[in-house]
Design a binder for these strands. Structure first.
Lengths: 110, 110
DNA sequence: TGTCCGTTTCGTAATTTTACGAAATACGAA
DNA sequence: TTCGTATTTCGTAAAATTACGAAACGGACA
């Protein structure tokens, strides 16, 4: 980018790693189905992919994609209990995302 | 969808309007540049598109797109003060998104 | 071994997002 | 009216997202 040459570095905005991380978590929350899944999992303990598949008006393969996005974002984790897979919130990253979000909204409370 | 016919409605997950609304706000936060802009605007008072353009390593047209996404999400608003446009946080919707996010994370504090 | 079950991966398609430069717009000032 | 400044819209392209059904997979069990 030409700008990186013509303008001193100190004048370039530094997008912090916290901001990039927050954006990543926000992306995970950017679909109603994923918000629903996370809300469900954060309230109760865990649940099976099949439970969600029966209840949600989307194809199983589509649900699977949403679950793997949440997994990639680190917000949930799956435990293979043949023949089912039990999904739970990843508490550590859940708290991390909460912390970043609070920080973003200027809430220092924890 | 066949599922809507073969399974009684009461067994179908209801994705609430709050969840859909939260997903919409989360989508607005799902890019590092937009997180940066919102953080900047929420801390200080307001700023001009040009201020951001000089500081961010992206094309002005790209910045404009991000700004209009934030506008469409209702999180910022622009005031035309020729020849510049002053952007500020939309406090009402900012608080609304904060509220939904707190609710989502199980924080009833406000 | 073969079969069933729950789930994911594959193949595909439509739509949206992100990005850029060039052109258009809106307005104040010369 | 013409010029200059600040910003957005247009045209375009590449990549990512969302969605589906069909096929594949891994393990339990007959």
């Amino acid at each position: 980018m030409a700008r990186l040459v013509t303008i001193p570095e100190s004048d370039i905005a530094t997008i912090t790693s916290d901001q990039t991380e927050l954006a990543r978590y926000a992306k995970a929350l950017s679909h109603p189905v994923r918000v629903y899944i996370l809300t469900t999992l954060s309230k109760q303990t865990c649940c099976y992919s099949g439970d969600l598949a029966e209840i949600l008006p989307i194809a199983r393969s589509t649900l699977s994609q949403h679950l793997s996005e949440l997994k990639n974002a680190g917000l949930i984790q799956g435990e293979f209990l043949p023949p089912k897979i039990k999904y739970c919130i990843n508490r550590e990253n859940w708290e991390r995302s909460k912390h970043l979000m609070m920080q973003f909204y200027g809430l220092t409370i924890e």
